[in-house]
């Protein structure tokens, strides 16, 4: 357990000392969402109808932007090699790194989302559902993303390849998360969508650390 906590604190410390690595995707998130009212229409009805889609698509893209840095620095320095030959479980170390990635990418998005939801005229009930979907599903984005990041770690300028690998896996999350918020706006049941997102979270928590470890070993061979 000490390796898990130490890896998280190490990654957070490194990110704080090199803030552009996690601030750039967050800036992208805030700026692009705040441009929609200017570009489309300042009308409350139009914006609130589009808000779930806008917020969730931009959330995915900003997480995707930050995924490149997940293993990249440690690969360049040779720390990933030491992680692989360590007697500690590689899956546990990678889970710790993914947790740190979520704290730096998903958590700030959750904290910022109510304000951006208000800017897009979402009502308070929908904002609560938006936060709920983000809490359940942003960890999935980091976890699934870690598989892609570990597969492309040795390839230079792999941003496009990473998007092609990961975005199809993000689509179910996008569908169910946006549908939950739209249903909440129309006062319809949202249990099914939340159950599905919950299933996705549990499944990715169980499976992805092992898959990332396996693909990382292959990438570094």
């Amino acid at each position: 357990m000490s390796i898990f906590l130490n890896t998280i604190s190490r990654d957070l410390k490194m990110a704080i000392r090199n803030p552009s690595s996690f601030l750039n995707p967050l800036m992208f998130f805030v700026i692009s969402i705040s441009l929609f009212p200017i570009a489309i229409s300042p009308e409350a009805e139009t914006l609130s109808r589009m808000a779930p889609g806008i917020i969730w698509v931009i959330t995915m893209l900003s997480v995707l932007l930050s995924l490149n840095t997940l293993f990249h620095y440690d690969f360049d320095n040779g720390v990933l090699e030491q992680m692989i030959i360590s007697h500690h479980s590689l899956s546990l170390i990678l889970l710790a790194k993914t947790t740190a990635h979520w704290i730096l990418s998903g958590l700030p998005i959750i904290i910022l989302s109510p304000f951006l939801g208000m800017a897009l005229f979402l009502n308070s009930e929908s904002i609560i559902i938006l936060i709920l979907t983000l809490i359940i599903a942003t960890p999935c984005l980091s976890l699934i993303g870690s598989i892609g990041a570990s597969l492309v770690v040795g390839i230079k300028n792999s941003g496009m390849l990473l998007s092609l690998l990961i975005l199809p896996l993000y689509i179910p999350i996008l569908i169910f998360a946006t549908s939950a918020i739209s249903n909440a706006q129309s006062n319809l049941a949202i249990d099914g969508q939340l159950y599905f997102l919950g299933f996705f979270l549990v499944a990715s928590l169980i499976i992805t650390p092992f898959l990332s470890a396996l693909s990382l070993k292959i990438s570094l061979e």
Binding site: Y73, D76, V79
Partner: peptide, 8 residues
């Protein structure tokens, strides 16, 4: 590679 992180 020295396996060191420049930020630490």
């Amino acid at each position: 590679l020295a396996s060191l992180s420049p930020e630490l």
